[in-house]
Measured scan of single mutants.
Amino acid sequence: MDSLVVLVLCLSCLLLLSLWRQSSGRGKLPPGPTPLPVIGNILQIGIKDISKSLTNLSKVYGPVFTLYFGLKPIVVLHGYEAVKEALIDLGEEFSGRGIFPLAERANRGFGIVFSNGKKWKEIRRFSLMTLRNFGMGKRSIEDRVQEEARCLVEELRKTKASPCDPTFILGCAPCNVICSIIFHKRFDYKDQQFLNLMEKLNENIKILSSPWIQICNNFSPIIDYFPGTHNKLLKNVAFMKSYILEKVKEHQESMDMNNPQDFIDCFLMKMEKEKHNQPSEFTIESLENTAVDLFGAGTETTSTTLRYALLLLLKHPEVTAKVQEEIERVIGRNRSPCMQDRSHMPYTDAVVHEVQRYIDLLPTSLPHAVTCDIKFRNYLIPKGTTILISLTSVLHDNKEFPNPEMFDPHHFLDEGGNFKKSKYFMPFSAGKRICVGEALAGMELFLFLTSILQNFNLKSLVDPKNLDTTPVVNGFASVPPFYQLCFIPV
């Protein structure tokens, strides 16, 4: 009986604490739906499609509103004006990374994606500088992407125009580009180590996009005490870190300090320079996690976009025909596509942009946080508050993009057929937390897609009208449904 009384008292205290925290903070924060004790607004949000729920709530509470995930307040920004004001106009104040408990377990605050403060700034600055020195957006990395595009075309030829699921092959190409940047090595598509790495990356994007992960991140005790797919994700990350550590040891034994070959060499050189400046942010643990982040951000996002792009091109054969006509006119058949071609191919450029806009790969991006107490639109948001960005509300804005739910390359073309930029184009987020590999991803999408369409016609196994382009999961990332196609050599 005594234990029951204690339990009831504990629960009562928890409920009172929950109510007090919510009521004391709500006077400062933007308005929002009334949260339930302990669980907050979790029942009012469709976990399978958070973005749709945010759109519905914005119609009631406006472009800036507050939700509670458990006891934790989260300020939501919906629509271009609110997102721009926060991420661009007040970029420094909104540059923090929001709480992501599962990532905390995986990387302990290291790396480039989930770190904060001085650690994040130094690692991000170093990573950007190193990638630029190796030619991100310049010639040397373009050579690597072109080489991988040629290998991709050869792998597709091996399908002999038979029906195939493109998931694996389209994942190999961007993964190999990242391998060449980090390890100075590309792998054969049949290499077992490479296959294991690909498998872990593919599993992780599916797990991260599941409703279960949303629950884990908002009720963090689940991570330590409950079984579930989150444990598989943590094991996959541990596998990748151990693999990278092996490569780091190989580099330490063979590195030429006067001739760095890749990202690992550059990081080890930085560690050597910083060894007298303790404590340094440049450690082996930081290198492991930064490399894992580059793999995660640079492989599955690009391969998922490529997979979605081919599905949309199957669905819209008239678009595919126009792209192939432009390829034939500008590039021809006797040389590989290059980035200089893009400025002469406005329709193809528009298609690449429209694919990214339409699929809305990361509907709410990753959570941000404010780095200080900030007054925002007459609300006071306390330091450390998590900020949720609705990228969907920007990419699918119906004023900027008429009929935003329709796939239409003319969203990025003017009346004369010239490519038209849009400030609403934010597939990689915006501001200080914009994806480090934005330029690389854009290069890969253009070169891989043009190389495929230069060499193959795409054949659907069903009537294009019957192809479903609805994402199968739409949590962290929008993942396309399973499909097969035939690559018919031109």
Rank of each mutant, 00 (worst) to 15 (best):
L90H: 15
F401T: 04
N56H: 13
V351S: 03
F401H: 05
S3Q: 11
S220G: 12
L9K: 13
L67G: 02
V60H: 11
I434V: 15
L395G: 07
L152G: 00
I222Y: 15
L485E: 00
T470N: 11
E155Y: 14
F446M: 02
T229S: 15
A430S: 13
F183A: 03
I123W: 09
S303K: 15
L388S: 03
E438N: 13
S58G: 10
S12Y: 09
I223T: 14
L197G: 01
L314F: 01
L17R: 11
M406A: 15
V323G: 01
T371K: 11
G171H: 10
L208I: 12
T364M: 15
T386N: 09
K383P: 02
R125S: 07
Q44V: 06
V330Y: 11
V436F: 14
L90K: 15
K232H: 06
A350P: 01
N41F: 03
Q146K: 13
V436A: 13
T299N: 02
K465T: 10
L245P: 01
L90I: 12
T392I: 04
T469N: 03
K232R: 11
S18P: 15
S390M: 11
F487T: 00
I50R: 11
D360F: 03
T55D: 14
S254T: 14
C372E: 15
C435A: 00
F482V: 14
N455V: 08
I141Q: 01
V6P: 12
Q454S: 04
S140T: 13
P382D: 04
L4V: 13
C372I: 06
G46N: 12
E253V: 13
I215P: 04
P101A: 12
C10I: 11
L380R: 11
S365D: 05
Q278D: 11
V153I: 11
T159R: 04
P227C: 15
Q324F: 03
E148A: 02
P337L: 05
K399A: 12
P427S: 08
K206Y: 02
Q484R: 11
L152C: 02
V323W: 00
F194K: 00
Y379S: 05
T159H: 05
E148I: 02
A86I: 06
S303P: 02
F65K: 02
E154L: 06
L413G: 01
R377K: 12
F407Q: 00
Q22H: 12
L36N: 05
A369D: 12
F110S: 10
S365W: 00
N258R: 12
F65T: 03
E199T: 12
E93F: 05
I434G: 14
E318G: 13
I215S: 05
P489A: 03
I112W: 08
D165T: 01
D408A: 03
V330M: 10
P30S: 01
L380Y: 12
R132T: 06
P279N: 15
A430C: 10
Y483N: 01
G27P: 10
C216Y: 15
K52H: 10
F226L: 15
S24G: 13
S115V: 14
K48H: 11
F94S: 08
D89C: 10
D256H: 10
L447P: 00
A86S: 09
K52M: 09
K432P: 08
R157G: 07
I284C: 06
F100G: 15
E300P: 03
L11M: 14
L458V: 06
E142V: 04
E328S: 14
S478K: 13
F126P: 02
R333Y: 10
L287T: 02
T290S: 10
I359Q: 08
S115K: 05
G27S: 15
S365N: 14
S451A: 14
Q324Y: 05
D468R: 07
V248A: 07
Q340H: 10
I387C: 12
I178R: 01
T229L: 14
D373L: 01
G70C: 07
S429K: 04
P31L: 06
R377A: 07
E272A: 12
M255D: 06
T34R: 14
D165H: 01
L7A: 13
L440P: 03
P31S: 07
L234R: 13
D414I: 04
K383E: 09
T34M: 13
L458Y: 00
V490Q: 13
V76L: 03
Q454H: 05
L208G: 15
K200V: 11
M406F: 10
T66G: 02
A321W: 09
V462P: 03
P337Y: 01
P367N: 10
L453H: 00
R329G: 11
F407Y: 02
M406L: 12
T348W: 02
L29S: 03
V490N: 12
D224I: 05
I141R: 00
Y189C: 01
K84V: 06
E274P: 07
T302V: 10
D143N: 12
T159Q: 07
M129P: 08
D349N: 15
S451D: 03
S3N: 13
R433E: 02
E203H: 05
L311K: 01
R342L: 12
F419T: 06
N41T: 05
N218I: 15
K185S: 06
S140N: 09
P409D: 02
S254P: 04
L445P: 01
Q324S: 08
M257F: 14
D463C: 06
V490F: 08
S451V: 07
S140P: 06
F482H: 15
I223D: 06
E272C: 08
T470M: 09
V319M: 08
K185L: 02
L458S: 00
L77M: 12
T290G: 09
K270H: 10
K138M: 14
K185M: 04
G117V: 05
K399N: 13
L449Y: 00
A321I: 11
I169A: 03
G96R: 06
T159P: 01
Q252V: 08
A238S: 13
K459C: 08
T392Q: 15
W120I: 04
A149M: 04
L102F: 15
S280M: 09
L54D: 03
C266G: 08
G384R: 04
L287S: 01
Y347V: 04
R97Q: 01
S336N: 12
I284P: 06
L311G: 01
L77N: 01
F94I: 08
R329L: 13
D262V: 01
L449C: 06
V177T: 04
D143A: 14
K206R: 13
N289F: 10
K241N: 04
T470A: 13
T386L: 08
A369Q: 15
Y243N: 04
R329N: 12
G27R: 14
K421G: 11
T371A: 09
P227N: 10
L445K: 03
V83N: 05
L268D: 02
P471S: 06
G109K: 08
M240D: 00
S429L: 05
T305W: 05
L170W: 01
D143S: 14
N259I: 07
T305M: 05
Y225R: 08
N334Y: 12
K190L: 06
L453Y: 03
I488W: 04
K138Y: 12
P73D: 01
M406H: 15
K72P: 01
K200I: 08
E199V: 08
D191Y: 01
F226S: 05
T167M: 04
C13T: 13
S393P: 04
P73R: 05
N202G: 09
F376P: 00
L131V: 08
F263L: 12
W212L: 10
R377P: 04
K432Q: 08
N418D: 08
Y347W: 10
V237R: 09
F69M: 12
H411I: 01
L366R: 00
W212V: 10
Q454G: 05
N378W: 02
G137A: 09
L233G: 04
G298E: 00
G117L: 05
F183T: 04
N334A: 11
Q356G: 07
A161E: 11
T450F: 00
Q252K: 15
V5A: 12
I47N: 14
I389K: 03
R335K: 10
R377V: 02
V352N: 03
L453Q: 00
D191A: 04
C266V: 09
S220C: 15
V462F: 05
R186W: 00
I434E: 15
S3V: 15
L201F: 06
L71V: 14
V479M: 14
L77Q: 00
F376V: 10
V473N: 14
I374N: 03
F482S: 15
T392D: 12
S51N: 15
L366N: 05
T392C: 08
S162F: 08
R97G: 03
S365V: 12
N217H: 15
P37H: 03
C338L: 08
S24E: 09
L36Q: 01
R307E: 02
L54A: 08
K247V: 07
H276S: 12
W20T: 13
F412D: 00
E104S: 12
H184N: 15
R433S: 01
I50D: 06
G431I: 01
T450M: 05
K399R: 12
G384V: 00
N259P: 14
N133W: 06
E405K: 09
D341E: 03
I223Q: 10
S95H: 10
N474G: 09
I374V: 13
L314V: 09
P471G: 07
G109I: 05
S24D: 13
D463P: 11
R97L: 01
S58E: 10
K185I: 04
L461A: 12
L14D: 06
K315W: 02
F263Y: 14
